[in-house]
């Protein structure tokens, strides 16, 4: 599927791990072509170990493809690593809060990298903590917060830098059903309100249907099995049909 204005583009991307000379390399991603449009909310769905996180790391510039080209906003995120400072933010599967920093200091982390003055940094961090219902906990250390609260802090940290691209690696999978649902709704609202482009990795079909305005199902090694678009007016019956289709692909 081609996208009018792709902001993220993967062109015949392959990623293999291990020593290929020894013949022991493992292909996590295999000749993947993918385009993500500006403002799009893409849900990447696949079984555990299908290479979702590898794709994510390549888009984030944390790992380099073995072959093929990855571009974000027309630049290589791995080689032009510093050029993406403040432009890509990540919400990880677990909160990854620095234990030696309070909630507000954790949210300020990305802003420190952007050399934002301390006063402004604090103001922005407090704004996002407020939006995520954490006022009153800003001076708590991570160990004093519940799992849901910690994940909220990590979402606040990602939003605080006002990055255009949000990469989310199963951020609600470690939470209980109710907390996950509430946070997901808050997250969706924030993404839409702020006009972000988001790539959301998940292994839950329901989560993908709830979040994505586009769903890509990956086969193993990572390659597109189906690419589906969801409109706002997609009915429950149509969603059920899509769910069935995804289940069939994942069962293969």
């Amino acid at each position: 599927m081609t996208v009018a204005q792709p902001i993220i583009r993967l062109d015949q991307v392959t990623k293999a791990f291990g020593a290929s000379s020894a013949g022991a390399s493992f292909k996590a991603v295999d000749r993947l072509d993918l385009e993500v449009g500006s403002g799009q909310m893409l849900a990447l769905l696949g079984k555990t170990g299908c290479g979702k996180s590898t794709i994510f790391n390549m888009i984030a510039g944390l790992t380099e493809p073995t072959s093929g080209i990855v571009t974000v906003d027309g630049r290589n995120p791995f080689h032009d690593f510093d050029a993406f400072r403040g432009k890509i933010a990540i919400v990880f599967q677990n909160d990854r809060l620095l234990p030696w920093r309070t909630a507000v200091q954790n949210v300020e982390l990305g802003l420190e990298m952007l050399d934002i003055p301390p006063g402004q940094r604090n103001e922005t961090a407090m704004h996002w903590l407020g939006k995520l219902g954490l006022l009153g906990h800003e001076h708590d250390y991570p160990h004093a917060l519940s799992g849901g609260m910690r994940q909220r802090v990590s979402i606040a940290r990602a939003f605080a830098t006002d990055a255009n691209i949000l990469l989310c690696d199963e951020p609600f999978s470690a939470l209980d059903e109710m907390t996950g649902r509430t946070l997901r709704a808050e997250f969706l609202k924030l993404v839409k309100e702020n006009g972000k482009t988001a790539v959301f990795i998940t292994h839950s079909i329901n989560e993908a249907l709830e979040i994505g305005d586009r769903i890509i199902v990956l086969r193993r090694p990572a390659n597109i099995a189906i690419d589906l678009r969801l409109e706002t007016e997609t009915t429950v019956a149509e969603k059920d049909e899509i769910r069935q289709k995804i289940q069939n692909v994942l069962a293969m």
Partner: peptide
Amino acid sequence: RDLTEMVMSFRPTRAKLFRVMIIP
């Protein structure tokens, strides 16, 4: 490794990586 990757995702300079992550 998780925390280091998280800090790296904000693309810190080497000095900032030392200050906010490595030293603490």
